[in-house]
Amino acid sequence: MSLQVSHLHKTYGSKVVVDDLSFSMEGPGVYALLGTNGAGKTTSIRMMLGMLSRDRGEALWNGQPLSTDSCNIGYLAEERGLYPKYSLMDQLMYFASLRGVSKEESKKRIKSLAERLEVEEYLYPKAPAPSEGKKRGFAVKKKEKPKLADQLSKGNQQKIQFMTALLSDPELIVLDEPLSGLDPVNTDIIRDVIREEIEKGKYLIMSSHQMATVEEFCTDITILDRSKSILQGNLNEIKKSYGRVRLHLKCESDIKPFIQEAGAAILSEKEYEYELKVTGEEQANRLLAALIGKGIPVITFDLREPSLHEIFVEKVGEEHES
């Protein structure tokens, strides 16, 4: 199976919102669409999924136009919500039925996903304990009513929405900002589920501002800025192309004169702990040799490739400068 997105282009009046976007996924994995706010990520996803008309371009799944007819797609939209006054179970059953999942299968999948995402208590109201209703002799406690969407916290609503994307057991999962607004505990829960889906051999397209998460999962990326693709390719190769140019250095005294002498740039500094931009291993080793030569104890010396966050900021910054 493969996904081929070619020359997607969209304008609103005279404004170009997506400019000739192309990328492909030849096998299972995670593809990240990254970009600044308003760069065109969501519009690209909507066009790709056929929800928004395209001026040009196409999206193919195994050579067929990508749609719910040719591919089982799960989509977590950036703009998400639930019917506020309807029961959560009704809503999930509805979304599953729209994807052609049978009633019995829907129930099984909802149960399984609810366990994985730890939202069972909102979907399966507890029956009262046998002793509970008899305590006062007259009041029999009723079974809890099913929860409505507006009775849930934002994080739990988001987990229910995440369930809707996975209900049809999709082969292609598109997640637009899947972790935004979640607390660390819920972030970890959803990350675990995403990891499980990757292990099952699913195709994932992810759009996010959380670079650490994207970096953890994705194999290939496209960075969009002001509707254009400014960087595209395999993440490891991109990082390699930059080389090991970031140096994390921690000492017990001020070493700024040594850094200046070596010609490295200070990116950040905090109590004798420095993030440096170096030209490569030679410059970093020269600095280390200078410090050791003067008998300055070095606690941490970590020369590494730039992170995705650093690449993103640098690349977008370059584009804006040009």
Binding site: R46, L49, M51, T68, I73, Y75, L76, A77, E78, E79, R80, G81, L82, Y83, P84, F95, L98, R99, Q161, T164
Partner: peptide, 14 residues
């Protein structure tokens, strides 16, 4: 109600 509940994208995929 559907529009203001931001459900449209989720529905339109199906």
């Amino acid at each position: 109600e559907e529009k203001s509940s931001k459900l449209v994208d989720t529905l339109l995929i199906s």
